[in-house]
């Protein structure tokens, strides 16, 4: 019960959060310009590498966001990505049609998503266990059915967007990329709008926070959950397809190498918010690119400690030491119509 505020500082009306982000953005911009002036090629290489490392993380995190905003915990992103990477690669090897392979990857991701949704919504299986099952099965299936010796006819190439690509710094960074990267960038913005400015997003968030309230207003909780997990699956499918169709053009067993779990970290770090998560992914990507760049420059640091950074940061964030993040309230709880 509210009676009175115990304490309220004199500066409480200032929007510190906004100012903090503005100052941070300016600092980053200044740093980029500074390094760009000193060594443009290296700066561009690091920034592009940052983006590239971030793309699968962004897509994986978007998968997590759509699932969890609708109240379904998804720790099977890793498995979804791996299976999609596998099927899109195999399709590419057979047909050589990149667009069709991409489509197959997305379909795979969404089928696995549907499977998770079926387990958690229909069968009310504990969702963490459901995700674990998906991860184990994905490793088994791809390992068992992977045919070595298949080769592909190629992978997605960069498409410069006309004059935009010639803008200094951001041109090559943002407007000269292969298709899935563009899709990822667009999806971040679209997801942000969908979640916070559309009917679908409002209903999705309501279902993730208080499904019964949504149900009493005639919102079909199950449909919203199924479809969001499906949409999430498409994102994870894109992430997997990125690895085999755009990144390497090659499949390997276990090639996701924990990216699905880092995507989870990214999602939490970004507080279940597409744009913030994209920022977090870029930050992790930057840490990775810098680690490579430092080695290029002959500076040796124990790489295991660099490798720990994303995980340590996630623990710190989830523990609320810095910027507490709050998960959707109804997450992980199967909804039961009475």
């Amino acid at each position: 019960m509210i009676s009175e505020t115990v304490k309220r500082g004199p500066f409480s009306h200032i929007n510190w959060k906004l100012w903090r982000s503005v100052i941070l953005a300016l600092l980053i911009l200044a740093a980029i310009l500074f390094f760009n002036a000193r060594n443009p090629a290296e700066t561009r290489a690091v920034l592009r590498s940052t983006l590239r490392y971030a793309v699968p993380l962004i897509l994986g995190a978007l998968c997590g966001i759509f699932c969890e905003r609708a109240g379904i915990v998804n720790i099977g992103i890793e498995g979804q990505m791996l299976l999609s990477a596998f099927t899109s690669y195999m399709t590419n090897a057979w047909t050589g049609n990149l667009m069709f392979s991409l489509f197959v990857g997305m379909v795979t991701g969404s089928i696995v998503g549907l499977f998770l949704a079926f387990l958690s919504i229909k069968l009310k299986l504990n969702q963490v266990i459901g995700g674990t099952v998906i991860n184990i099965l994905a490793a088994g299936i791809t390992g068992y059915f992977y045919q070595v010796g298949t080769t592909t006819k190629g992978k997605f190439a960069s498409i410069p967007l006309g004059p935009l690509a010639d803008i200094p710094i951001i041109g090559p960074l943002l407007f000269n990329n292969p298709p899935i990267t563009y899709i990822a960038i667009v999806l971040v913005i679209v997801s942000q709008i969908v979640l916070f400015n559309t009917r679908w997003g409002l209903r999705t968030r309501a279902v993730g926070e208080h499904p019964r309230a949504a149900d009493t207003l005639g919102v079909d909780v199950f449909k919203i959950r199924y479809l969001n997990v499906l949409i999430g699956g498409v994102m994870a499918g894109l992430a997997g397809a990125f690895l085999t169709l755009e990144g390497v053009g090659l499949f390997e067993r276990g090639m996701t190498n924990g990216r699905g779990f880092i995507a989870l970290a990214v999602m939490i770090f970004g507080k279940w918010n597409p744009i913030s998560s994209a920022m977090a992914a870029l930050f992790f990507g930057f840490a990775n690119a810098m680690q490579t760049q430092l080695q290029f420059m002959g500076i040796q640091i124990a790489h295991q400690f660099v490798g720990m950074i994303p995980y340590l940061l996630t623990i710190i964030v989830v523990s609320g030491f810095v910027g507490r993040s709050r998960a959707p309230a109804a997450e992980g709880i199967p909804y039961e119509k009475e």
Binding site: R205, A206, E209, H210, R212, A213, A214
Partner: peptide, 9 residues
């Protein structure tokens, strides 16, 4: 009886 309101909305 138990309000059907989304607390964070």
């Amino acid at each position: 009886q138990h309000f059907m309101l989304v607390p964070v909305f």
